[in-house]
Write a protein that binds this DNA or RNA. Structure first.
Lengths: 148, 148
DNA sequence: AGTATATAGTTGCATTTTCAACTACTTTAG
DNA sequence: CTAAAGTAGTTGAAAATGCAACTATATACT
């Protein structure tokens, strides 16, 4: 979206990056909806919990990993709890805090979502990248993330 | 976020792509807020209008360009109108439709936002890409967009 | 022409997200 | 030990978003 020099690559790359991201997310969420599955955000939360040691994480940590504001995550977690995909457990060391723990149903839901999600990633994104390009993307973006 | 083979580049690139995008957007919006400027979405709309012939676009076209649902755009436009940055004009050819036209104040707001926005793009994103990488990103993402 | 279908845009309602308190507990410093 | 400051998480109210229904107009079909 930015401005001038529409032909200078340096200026074109950011708008393309933005457009690509939003169109891909749009498509993936559509696919999940069509399959009557929960949205992308749920997958992220479930997957972070599944990977975590003891399949549990403090709200704070979880929020950081999925890039959500704290209050936002509180309510997203409420919804997941209501859906039976995770539960909260008080934290023994720090009585202010609590853990989110993924349930069996949560594990299963994530597993059900994966084929649909994965197919979209492959078909819309990954299939357009050869090995060299993949490496370039990873290196460049990792650099950005480290600098943040 | 996806699943297995955390070490296979092909699997790692998508989660990194997602994380990079959300952290960058987060930072840029923070910078705009700090500078007491409107959010990114406003910039997009203003810039699309500024570029457009006669500095006006039909709602429909505008929505597609900024990747927003129609109803969403209606209300975003309402807010921009309320802020005096654009106005609506009935379309003579098609009496169902209307144009969004950017105002002088809209042009100025966009111009005020650019230094802050541009600085963030450069400092968080573009500065991490050399010429070759920039080309790779553009080519790969353009390919994805075309296929959508 | 006359009806059926499609398109542009808006609106009501439910859901989601954000912002600013607020509670409860922990840590630091005197 | 106590007071001050910091941290974890939740909550109420307001703003933003998405979905489905709706109005108005345009296009296609018979």
């Amino acid at each position: 979206m930015p401005i001038p020099n529409e032909n200078d690559p340096k200026s074109r790359v950011w708008p393309i990056f933005l457009a690509t991201h939003s169109r891909l997310i749009e498509r993936i969420d559509e696919a999940l909806t069509r399959a009557k599955l929960p949205p992308l955000a749920w997958y992220d939360v479930l997957w972070e919990l599944e990977k975590a040691p003891d399949q549990r994480l403090r709200m704070h940590d979880l929020a950081k990993r999925v890039v959500l504001s704290r209050s936002n995550l509180t309510r997203l977690a409420d919804r997941l709890v209501a859906a039976g995909l995770l539960y909260r457990e008080p934290c023994p060391d720090d009585r202010r805090g609590s853990y989110c723990v993924i349930t069996q149903a949560g594990l299963e839901t994530r597993k059900t979502m994966w084929p649909v999600y994965g197919e979209q990633i492959e078909g819309l994104f990954a299939c357009h990248l050869n090995a060299a390009e993949t490496e370039v993307l990873i290196k460049a973006m990792t650099r950005m993330l480290k600098a943040l």
